[in-house]
């Protein structure tokens, strides 16, 4: 392993009695996209704020590009790019005026400014729109401009907070392509997200955060494999307990079957090693045992199932509860 681009060790931060970050260890390698996933209140925002030097941890250490974030925050700020989840470009300014503002804030040399602005515009495919007021931009264009503003100083690592939140499908795909383009140019990306499809599509590795702790870190494929493999769901026809048990005995004899389970609705769940020939061979085994097959489906576990396993709740369910709790809290205030 080379030197980590982002590293935290036993990071902790409390707000009052609540441990928002409760011993987080993270390691992000050069050139990878790491996704930080977790429900609201899991500690994603607090962890990110510590890394981008906006919050001081109570204990533990955090470094970006080998620089300690608490003792040398200015150096860290110079070298990271940060794009918040809100649309932040000033709508009363043109695209160019926004970009020039960020070039000045990040101390981009004047001689290089215009070239870097042109490069950033090209990277997010906004050429030709830079002279227009941002007020006239679509949400997708504003997000792209926000990303461009965060790249002018050529950061080695970029923090993206919910980059495709609230965007339409086309803009979302465009933003994802730009993020992958960043990675291709050697930039390390730290991605905070609530979107399972976004995490799956972009991330080399995913860290799942729950109640201030990292509960799982791995590639999306490994995380899903950890669930016990792909699932073949077979419903016998006619259906009955006798058919189910004969089917069960037949498929268990197949070499690629890991385990089986009745789903309680007349179907048998057959957990298998990933296998292209699983379906025909399950059908053959059923026929050989004299069981008719009414319906059959093959599914691969979704990241949502991984989330379910590690945090004990469906992802969108957690989100809904968190939103309801936040709304209730607001009403009480």
């Amino acid at each position: 392993m080379g030197p980590a681009v982002i590293e935290t060790k036993d990071l902790r931060k409390k707000f009052g009695d609540v441990a928002a970050v409760d011993g987080v260890d993270l390691r992000v390698e050069k050139g990878e996209i790491l996704g930080l996933l977790g429900p609201n209140g899991a500690g994603k925002t607090t962890t990110t704020k510590i890394l981008i030097t906006l919050l001081r941890p109570d204990s533990g250490s955090a470094s970006v590009l080998g620089i300690d974030v608490t003792s040398r925050p200015d150096e860290v700020r110079r070298r990271l790019g940060y794009v918040p989840q809100e649309l932040t470009a000033d709508v009363y300014l043109t695209g160019t005026e926004n970009l020039r503002l960020f070039a000045a804030l990040y101390g981009v040399p004047p001689a290089e400014r215009d070239r870097r602005i042109a490069d950033a515009l090209a990277l997010v495919a906004l050429e030709g729109h830079e002279g227009k007021l941002v007020r006239t931009y679509s949400g997708g264009m504003r997000k792209k401009l926000d990303i461009a503003c965060g790249l002018l100083h050529r950061p080695d690592v970029v923090f993206l907070d919910e980059p495709s939140l609230g965007l339409d499908v086309a803009s979302r795909r465009a933003v994802w392509d730009h993020v992958l383009g960043l990675k291709a140019s050697g930039v390390t990306v730290f991605l905070c997200t609530n979107g399972m499809d976004e995490a799956e599509r972009l991330c080399d590795r995913i860290a799942i955060l729950d109640r201030g702790k990292v509960v799982a870190t791995d590639t999306p494929a490994e995380l899903k494999r950890g669930l016990g493999g792909d699932v073949v769901t077979v419903t016998p026809e006619p259906s009955g307990d006798g058919e189910l048990s004969r089917l069960d005995a037949a498929v268990r004899a197949l070499p690629f079957v890991k385990s089986t389970k009745a789903d309680g609705n007349g179907a048998l769940l057959v957990y298998v090693e990933r296998n292209e020939t699983a379906l025909p061979r399950v059908i053959d085994a059923a026929r050989a045992a004299g069981v008719g097959v009414g319906s059959l489906s093959y599914s691969q576990p979704h990241l949502d199932d991984v989330f379910l396993k590690h945090t004990g709740a469906r992802f969108d369910e957690v989100e809904r509860k968190a939103a309801a709790a936040a709304a209730a809290k607001k009403r009480r205030r």
Partner: peptide
């Protein structure tokens, strides 16, 4: 609107 956070993360 998040602009201030962005400013504070700038050097």
């Amino acid at each position: 609107n998040g602009f201030l956070t962005r400013l504070l993360a700038a050097p």
